[in-house]
């Protein structure tokens, strides 16, 4: 893809993210457990969860990753 197309895609993606993030000002979300009533909780929690999961798998990968032919006789 052209660099300019990629740039446009990024801009529209960030625009959507901003709308969703600030939609919390208008939409009253239920809070069942207290913590989830926090401003833009799903955005923040989703983002941090993914970073956490990627780094956990990276850490596990250090110990458990092997070359593809590991099991070949």
């Amino acid at each position: 893809m052209l660099n300019s197309t990629i740039k446009k895609l990024w801009i529209s993606f960030l625009f959507i993210l901003a709308i969703l993030f600030f939609s919390d000002l208008l939409i009253h979300r239920h809070d069942y457990f207290g913590i989830d009533g926090f401003f833009a909780f799903p955005s923040i929690y989703g983002f941090l969860s993914c970073i956490f999961l990627v780094f956990v798998s990276k850490a596990i990968g250090i110990f458990l990753k092997r070359p593809e032919d590991y099991y070949d006789e």
């Binding site: 993210l17 833009a40 923040i44 929690y45 983002f47 993914c50």
Partner: peptide, 16 residues
């Protein structure tokens, strides 16, 4: 409420 929560969760995972 539910739609917005889910979209926030997923789109910010996409960002990550």
């Amino acid at each position: 409420d539910h739609v917005s929560s889910q979209l926030q969760l997923l789109m910010f995972s996409g960002l990550a």
